[in-house]
């Protein structure tokens, strides 16, 4: 039974995309992945509008002070089990904005992150690669934590 549930979780990851202060390049590349050229819907990925419907949170941008409480609230609103993907160099480590005066740190200082996808911006193929790694992590956990 847990094998069936793990299979269903791998075959149907629904994304929620949150931009916490990015230059929008990574957002454009993420939306590029939904276009007919790269078509992530063949993996069952849908872009959802409400955080309560999604189980993968994709965060772009470095978290600034204004988006910090909002990011935390969205992370809390998502039902378990959930996976967080940090998309782009800014979300991984801050990139060129890491010395700013209004920066509340890269994403893993705010919420726990599962997969990092470096790139400025990462190609849609790199995003697909990262999502596949995230799904492999669900497979490895097999109904474990979170």
């Amino acid at each position: 039974m847990s094998g069936l549930i793990t299979w269903a979780r791998i075959k149907s990851p629904w994304l929620f995309h949150f931009n916490s202060g990015s230059c929008n390049n990574c957002d454009i590349e993420l939306l590029d992945a939904l276009t007919p050229r790269f078509d992530v819907e063949r993996f069952g990925i849908l872009l959802e509008g409400s955080p309560r419907h999604a189980d993968v949170l994709v965060v772009t941008g470095i978290v600034n002070r204004q988006t910090l409480p909002r990011l935390k609230r969205i992370y809390d609103q998502m039902p378990n089990p959930k996976i967080v993907v940090a998309l782009g160099t800014c979300a991984t480590s801050g990139g060129i904005f890491s010395e700013g005066y209004n920066i509340a740190g890269p994403v893993d200082k705010v919420i726990p992150v599962d997969v990092y996808i470096p790139g400025c911006p990462p190609r849609p193929q790199a995003i697909i690669d990262g999502i596949v790694k995230a799904l492999a992590k669900i497979q490895a956990l097999r109904g474990g934590k979170r």
Binding site: S12, P36, D39, R42, G44
Partner: peptide, 16 residues
């Protein structure tokens, strides 16, 4: 011009 989901997709959605 896309491929679209495989046939077991709606069942995977509901079970998930």
């Amino acid at each position: 011009w896309r491929i679209g989901p495989p046939i077991y997709q709606p069942w995977a959605d509901v079970i998930k």
